[in-house]
Simulated assay, not measured.
Amino acid sequence: MKNPFDQTYILKILQELLNTPSPTGYCHHIIEKVRHETEKLGYAFHTTNKGGGVITVPGQSSEVLGISAHVDTLGAMVRSIKPSGSLKLTSVGGYMGNSIENEYCQVHTRDGRTIDGTILTTKPSVHVYSDARDMKRDESVMEVRLDEIVSSKADVEALGIRVGDFVSFDPRVQIKSSGYVKSRHLDDKASVAAIFGMLEWMKREGVTPQRTLNIFITTYEEVGHGLAHLPAEVTELLAVDMGAMGDDLTGNEQQVSICAKDSSGPYDYAMTTRLIELAERDGIAYAIDIYPNYGSDASAALRGGNDIRAALIGPVVHASHAMERTHIHAILGTAALIAAYATDAAVNN
């Protein structure tokens, strides 16, 4: 199909999602934004016990196709408050310590306050520490310098900061005239924006999918159990998550990734084959890749014992879990491939 999706709408939704802090476990604000946008489009929405969201789109049959994407992101929590007034961190999700060094951040207190800071090493200046360049960047040497006048643990506690408070990273969103989108947390907010692009198109054009869609917006994907449980009526799951880019991989930032295998093993042969056929039929730029160091909500669902078929697609993202970048073509292509699969009469449950 020709790409009929509203690029302006998709980028607006993407920017709003990217600018909403949502490290895994701290997703209530962003889920409310997802709820609000879903209800504006006129679709039903409910939350799960785990705090995720489910969007329901009635289909031509009562059979149910599951689609998933996640809004939780990498982040951190306060592990301890140091006597100096800085904060020791524990990571939420898997990333390199050097990828957050010198990053601006926010500490979110449980009484609703937000305190700004910067993530630094314990030896942040080459003018002072001879080994500042060489020290290994891991949790033991990373800390938050708060943008408040604090010099003791008591000063920090007076701000309302406690152990277990969440820390989010400044996404640094930039949407370029070339079509590139640079930001942290494109994993997986670019996929969520693609799904909303499809939903807006379905509503605008009066499109009814072949099967009823249950779209799961999950909040614990980055720690491995985002969609470990599925309702029994879902027998097929299309996970939408970012594709990786690098050595030994074929995808680029303007393409849709179709993942044939990740750490959970091969994805369903028939689903993956049909997605390839649909991409070729509709002229959607795509790449087939294998990600041995990767897991998705479909991985969690399979490992959770759900009796389902599963496949994985998503926009290709460069520098995943670091300073990420993709292109609007990849996001539009992802929306097109999801829509093609959801409306394909040849796909039978």
Rank of each mutant, 00 (worst) to 15 (best):
S263E: 06
G304F: 03
I30K: 14
Y43S: 03
H28Q: 12
L312R: 09
A322G: 14
E200V: 07
G179P: 00
V181S: 05
N306E: 13
V71E: 10
A330S: 15
N348E: 03
V54I: 14
I258A: 09
V173C: 06
A285L: 01
G224L: 09
I13E: 14
P4V: 00
S177C: 02
D147T: 05
G283Q: 03
E233F: 00
A301K: 03
M202Y: 13
D111A: 09
T235P: 04
E324H: 11
Q174V: 13
S61M: 01
G246W: 08
H70K: 05
P58M: 01
H28T: 10
N49E: 13
W201L: 13
I55V: 07
P21H: 11
D72I: 01
A154Q: 07
A158F: 01
A190D: 03
V207N: 13
G314K: 09
E143I: 00
D72H: 00
I100G: 00
D307H: 10
L11C: 07
T48M: 00
L199H: 07
N306W: 04
K189Y: 12
R325K: 14
T250H: 13
I161A: 09
T219I: 05
K182S: 10
V126A: 05
S263P: 02
K261E: 13
M1Y: 12
P124D: 06
V256M: 06
V347D: 00
G243K: 00
V141D: 06
S99M: 10
R133Y: 12
I328D: 00
L65R: 08
Y26E: 07
T24H: 05
Q15P: 04
H229L: 12
D241E: 13
I10N: 08
S140H: 05
Y180V: 07
F216S: 03
D165T: 04
F5N: 08
I308C: 01
L146N: 02
P292S: 02
